[in-house]
């Protein structure tokens, strides 16, 4: 039974879906870190802001969740832009502890603001229900949920867009240049401030997608972002800070490993997988598996 290929395939798909959440978070984090050399500790909270926005648009206004996602991405992207402009930019060049303070303080601000806004609606957990919640494709070996198929497609469409932006446009070239060498980029006339804003906005937008995705497959609360964010930290440490390739591959791989660990070892091990992996890497190769883009 355990080695039934259909079941294994099912676990794999589930791993890829949850891996998409980690991939989106990790990609945003690593993009921001590459350009700004800042880790956004509140990334999990941006993610839940995204989930909450999509939820609210659907629940209060009746907007289709798969349309709401885009509004939510734009909204949280704007929030990210505001955070960069009003928060991180004035602190640039001051002591590192100030940036760490802001990054960590944002967790409290966003969590409590969300909790405050949530209370009138729910007691604890919410979930976004799509019209396809109970529909599946029967593919013979496995049953693929409509939602999973749509979410995977949506994620990959967005990732393709990001790829085109980064590698096929002038703006993307500037962004990658700033990530490699900020000073040189500034000297060459690139407006690095604009790049900071854009990377934070994009990172926040990706987090909103991750959150909406999470909110469609899981019940969530304002505090649900913490654990996925910690896993995304593990992923970018494994993948090498600043490496997009590391974040994408690492995020997906992590989701799949987690899926199989849960399946074979039981739920208690689901969340422990990240840390065991992280500890192993710290012991063996603290600089990560992929190097930071040179």
């Amino acid at each position: 039974m355990i080695l039934d290929p259909g079941v294994l395939l099912q676990v794999l798909i589930w791993g890829l879906v949850i891996g998409s959440v980690y991939m989106l978070l990790a990609t945003g984090l690593t993009l921001i870190f590459g350009v700004m050399k800042v880790i956004n500790f509140a990334h999990g909270e941006l993610m839940m802001t995204g989930a909450f926005l999509t939820f609210l648009l659907w629940h209060a206004l009746g907007l289709h969740p798969y349309l709401g996602v885009f509004v939510s991405m734009a909204g949280v992207g704007l929030l990210g832009i505001a955070v960069e402009r009003l928060g991180f930019r004035p602190l640039r060049g001051t002591a590192k502890i100030n940036e760490i303070f802001l990054s960590i303080a944002l967790i409290l601000i966003l969590q409590n603001a969300l909790a405050r806004a949530f209370i009138p609606y729910f007691r604890e957990y919410a979930q976004i229900r799509t019209p396809y919640a109970h529909r599946v494709f029967d593919l013979g070996l496995l049953n693929l949920r409509y939602d999973f198929a749509i979410l995977l497609g949506l994620t990959w469409a967005v990732m393709l867009g990001l790829y085109l932006l980064l590698f096929r446009t002038e703006f993307g070239r500037e962004m990658r240049g700033t990530s490699q060498n900020r000073l040189a980029a500034a000297l060459m006339g690139i407006d690095v401030g604009r790049i900071d804003t854009a990377s934070f906005g994009i990172g926040a937008g990706l987090a909103a997608l991750a959150g909406s995705l999470y909110g469609i497959i899981n019940p969530f609360s304002p505090y649900s972002g913490t654990l996925p964010a910690i896993k995304a930290f593990a992923v970018i440490i494994l993948g090498g800070l600043g490496s997009i390739r590391g974040a994408v591959l690492g995020g997906l791989l992590y989701g799949v490993v987690e899926g199989f660990a849960t399946f074979f070892l039981g739920g208690a091990w689901r969340d422990a997988t990240a840390f065991i992996l992280l500890l192993l890497v710290l012991l063996v190769r603290p600089e990560g598996i992929f190097r930071e883009r040179a």
Binding site: K37, F41, I100, F233, L241, D271, F275, L278, L283, P286
Partner: peptide
């Protein structure tokens, strides 16, 4: 000992994660 080569953001992320794993161990294991 484990984090002796990590600084700033790296150290922050790893110590941040330790709290969650400790909670997990205390509750589950």
């Amino acid at each position: 000992r484990l984090c002796v080569r990590l600084r700033e953001w790296y150290l922050g992320m790893v110590t941040f994660g330790f709290t969650a794993i400790t909670q997990l161990l205390v509750v589950e294991q």
